[in-house]
């Protein structure tokens, strides 16, 4: 597994733990009320698990196992995938903290724009590697 994929996967594991921790607090709060303010963490729970865990893990594994080129650089435009991991995580933090801390619609929208940038950057990097056996 290349170093960049290791970063993607380890960050996704971090979001899995964070998302499940918040989820467990929310579920326990349903059974035995702990604090009403806990519900304000719901957007972070969703963001961390959908994008931080599932989407980030998918990108990391894709960078690892998509077909490689015969000649170096064997994984093609690596820079795009590096830019994507930075944009994705900045976007996730901005969206989740924006929603939880009430930073306003502009913070959430800016976070979503960063996430769009991450998706476009990763797609640009991975596109040439999406080929059949004949190349």
């Amino acid at each position: 597994m290349p170093r960049l994929s290791q970063w993607y996967v380890k960050l996704s594991f971090g979001y899995l733990l964070a998302g499940f921790t918040v989820g467990a607090l929310l579920l326990a709060n349903k059974g035995r009320p702990l604090h009403p303010a806990l519900w304000s963490l719901l957007p972070a729970h969703i963001e961390w698990l959908l994008l931080g865990w599932v989407a980030q893990l998918t990108l990391g594994v894709a960078f690892w196992i998509l077909p490689r080129f015969w000649q170096a650089p064997r994984r093609g435009r690596t820079t795009g995938a590096v830019v994507a991991i930075v944009l994705l995580n900045a976007g996730i933090l901005l969206v989740s903290l924006g929603a939880v801390l009430g930073l306003g619609a502009w913070a959430v929208a800016a976070g979503r724009l960063l996430e769009i940038g991450a998706a476009a950057s990763f797609a640009h990097a991975a596109w040439p590697r999406i080929v059949g056996r004949a190349g």
């Binding site: 899995l16 733990l17 499940f20 921790t21 989820g23 467990a24 607090l25 929310l26 579920l27 326990a28 349903k30 059974g31 035995r32």
Partner: peptide, 18 residues
């Protein structure tokens, strides 16, 4: 008592992730 079952469910799923 179902509230405590939900607490147990939350704890089990969190432990699974860990």
């Amino acid at each position: 008592g179902w509230g405590w079952v939900l607490v147990a469910s939350a704890l089990m799923q969190w432990l699974a992730a860990v």
